[in-house]
Design a binder for these strands. Structure first.
Length: 761
DNA sequence: GTTGGTATCTGTGGA
DNA sequence: AGATACCAAC
């Protein structure tokens, strides 16, 4: 393909093309929702390759594995298999890969363990316990987030201890010793050869900062082109690393960041829009180019305009006009329900109706909620209606107990100093090593600055416990000896048997027990697939099929990364995880004060703005249909709570909202009484004709749905007289095809359960 | 050390 | 409501 004349450039609009072809020097792309951002990114990379750069000189950082995978697939379509050598991945996975190579330079083993948030929490709770602190005061999650944000802002335990502001905050929260916990936590992680998610970023920064053996040179020379997706969601630490890689003396500064300030939804974990402003400032003198993608190719106008109006309520934003030429489309439908249960039913009803009426497939539809706990009721009704669905973001496969147990064994084989893994399996299956022994072990380890594993032979304990620990040690060692000769799959199978896990599970013949065994087998299959899969990322490096590499890989996977995500199902997920996705029909549910916006966000303007951006993200996922719902009451924390409708509903101008179903009122209290009876009818875009009533309501007497039969002449409120041509579907789901005279599109498919039809003969 | 039952706590989002 | 921590009895 000839650069500049390639066919892949033809399908781009002017601005997109400029963003793709201006490959040299710093570029900021401000990309509104549905503006073809991924296209621009992938074509840009393809273009860079077409112009002669080697794929492995390109670094593309994303937030999710999914985004990375999608990008690679799309690059591959343009440039072929070379795409596999592009360094495209999440911040965490790319950095882990680099750290694996450079680990020794910062005092880590290359087979370091990655602690997930459970490991982090469990370690923190051990530390809090050991310090004899009250854990009802020293809330683990609070501590975790304090430490996380410290790392994200390049604050070491030492700097933390010297920071008056942070310490005052801690004192006010009645936990003055957070800095000490942070210090201990960091030391324990290091001793265990473990990095938590933040460390994957922080330790890389540290490496580039201290720069032993001028290691930074290697990566600066290697990565000639750097791209960052979802730049609005990067935190200070992430940008600091990027800056280290591209902003130095002789740098070509081929850096492209893509983002949308209006879609920044991760401030709570340290992301800052400041990065976009800083970026412009940092690269101003290097002829930075800014491109704004403002045309939305995804949604119809009512949706786009409603989103625009809502986001106007936020302060501070980059000026842009998002527009669509897809026509007005459908107005937004609002469902109000009395209870959370009714909300579930009404949403499911509407989905059913929409499927029949507009021939939508399940996969065209998504239900988005603020918190994962909301999924249950929708699941119930979808199941009842026999609509296939899939819930994302719950417990991922790798978080299941039996899978974690198995993985803990593998982690221990790879890295004996991994304390969280050791704690998890030292007495599972039960081998008589109890709490007191483990506590003793932990104390001695801490006192002698060794790991628990190292203290294992020396800890005073009962003969039985001693023997057990000896056996345990032997087992891990025997597996460890095979690390070099056996591949990851063989090794894992060996461990599964030798540890007694398999036998333990086989002994349990309950349904759940068999499920657990299945999961272990699925895990083993997964390891096998990993061994056989050809995952060359870099032509320079040999594929790494070691167990350590596998473990580091899966530590960064989430629920979304399961491969079998194709099929015709309705998608249920949190709004956060829906970012980047699009569906023909979107349901945003639970639009109530204290839920969406979340109660935690209500006390600050910043928090509220972020909630509003989150709502903006939710709304802009919709291509054609947008349905918003809320319930006046819902069960939370085991108690019934009453909430008013979300303020975001009020922020949508009424002209974008379908007139039925939702009576707008300044007094939400009144709505409760009016709302319950109003049944949702999903309407096509209204033409002048179809909105006119054909029948006098006072004389109209609808018959029961099951009385309607093929061949009957019937009367419909809006379409007038019609003849029933056929009926399909059974029981509650009967859909009639009816011919109405004098209506455009005279053949209508009507769901009998909802339609009011009067039999005429 | 292990088991099972009760008390207590928690409760946004995700790599 | 559900998960987890804690405690008493075996």
């Amino acid at each position: 393909m000839i650069p500049g004349g390639g066919s892949y450039l033809d399908g781009l609009n002017d601005i997109q093309r400029q963003a793709v072809t201006n490959t040299e020097g710093p570029v900021l792309v401000v990309a509104g929702p549905g503006s073809g951002k991924t296209r621009v990114l992938t074509y840009r990379i393809a273009h860079i390759i077409e112009k002669g750069a080697a794929p492995w000189q390109i670094l593309a950082l994303t937030f999710t594995n999914k985004a990375a995978r999608e990008m690679k697939e799309r690059i591959e379509k343009v440039v072929g298999a070379r795409a596999n050598s592009v360094w495209a991945g999440t911040f965490h996975s790319i950095f882990a890969r680099i750290l694996r190579v450079e680990a020794d330079k910062i005092g880590y083993p290359s087979n370091f363990t990655i602690y997930d948030s459970d490991d982090t929490k469990s370690l923190l709770s051990t530390i809090v316990k050991e310090m004899n602190l009250d854990k009802s005061v020293y809330n683990i999650n609070t501590i975790r987030s304090r430490i996380s944000s410290a790392k994200s802002n390049l604050i070491t335990p030492r700097l933390y201890a010297e920071n008056d502001e942070l310490k005052t905050q801690d004192r006010m929260a009645k936990m003055p010793l957070v800095h000490e916990i942070y210090g201990k936590y960091t030391a324990r992680c290091k001793r265990a050869g473990a990095m938590d998610f933040d460390d994957l970023l922080y330790r890389l920064y540290e490496l580039l900062q201290s720069n032993p053996d001028n290691v930074i040179e290697k990566y600066r020379n290697k990565f000639k082109y750097v791209l960052v997706d979802e730049f609005q969601d990067t935190n200070h630490l992430q940008y600091s690393i990027v800056r280290k890689l591209v902003n130095y003396d002789k740098s070509l500064r081929n850096i492209c960041v893509v983002g949308d300030d209006a879609q920044s939804i991760y401030a709570f974990r340290g992301a800052t829009i400041q990065n976009i402003l800083d970026f412009e400032e940092d690269f101003k003198k290097y002829n930075i180019k800014v491109f704004k993608l403002e045309q939305n190719y995804r949604s119809t106008e009512h949706i786009v305009q409603a989103a625009n109006e809502v986001i106007l309520n936020n302060r501070r934003q980059i000026q842009k006009k998002i527009w669509s030429d897809k026509g007005q489309g459908n107005k937004i439908k609002v469902i109000k329900a009395m209870t959370d249960n009714e909300e579930g039913k009404r949403v499911a009803d509407t989905i059913l109706e929409q499927k029949n009426r507009f021939h939508l497939g399940n996969s065209d539809i998504a239900i988005l909620y603020r918190t994962n706990a909301q999924s249950r009721i929708f699941e119930e009704y979808l199941r009842r209606y026999n609509i296939h669905y899939r819930v994302f973001g719950g417990l991922s496969f790798y978080q299941r107990k039996e899978v974690k147990d198995m993985i803990a064994y593998l982690r221990l084989v790879v890295n004996q100093n991994d304390e969280e893994a050791l704690r998890r399996v030292i007495n599972f299956p039960k081998r008589g090593i109890g709490k007191t022994t483990i506590e003793k072990l932990s104390k001695i380890a801490d006192a002698t600055n060794q790991t628990m594993w190292e203290c294992l032979p020396a800890v005073p304990a009962s003969t039985r416990a001693k023997n057990s620990m000896g056996e345990f040690r032997k087992m891990i060692m025997s597996a460890k000896q095979r690390v070099d000769t056996a591949n990851a799959y063989e090794l894992a199978t060996y461990v599964a048997k030798r540890s007694g896990l398999i036998d333990l599970m086989k002994a349990d013949t309950s349904i759940e027990g068999m499920g657990r065994l299945e999961n272990i087998n699925a895990l083993l299959d997964g390891i096998n697939a990993f061994v056989e899969e050809d995952n060359l990322i870099d032509t320079e490096s040999i594929p790494d099929k070691s167990l350590a590499s596998y473990l580091q890989n899966i530590a960064l996977l989430t629920d979304f990364d399961d491969k079998n995500n194709n099929g015709d199902f309705v998608t249920l997920m949190s709004v956060h995880s829906a970012k980047g996705l699009e569906f023909k029909s979107i349901y945003v549910v639970g639009l109530e004060e204290n839920l969406f916006p979340s109660a935690m966000a209500l006390d600050s303007k910043d928090g509220l703005d972020e909630e509003r951006r989150l709502f903006y993200v939710a709304v802009t996922r919709a291509e054609q249909f947008l349905t918003l719902s809320f319930a006046n009451s819902r069960y939370r924390f085991g108690k019934m709570r009453f909430n008013q409708a979300s303020r975001f509903l009020e922020e949508i101008p009424p002209i974008h909202i379908e007139s039925t179903g939702y009576i707008r009122s300044k007094s939400p209290a009144n709505q409760a009484h009016q709302g319950a009876r109003i049944v949702g009818n999903f309407k096509k875009p209204r033409t002048a004709q179809s909105s006119r009533l054909m029948v006098d309501p006072s004389t109209f007497k609808p018959n029961a749905p099951d009385e309607i039969q093929v061949g009957m002449k019937i009367l419909h409120m809006k379409f007038g007289e019609g003849k029933v041509l056929s009926i399909d579907g059974g029981k509650d789901n009967r859909v009639a095809t009816i011919f109405f005279q004098g209506v455009d599109n005279p053949e209508r498919r009507i769901m009998l359960r909802f339609a009011k039809l009067q039999i005429l003969n």
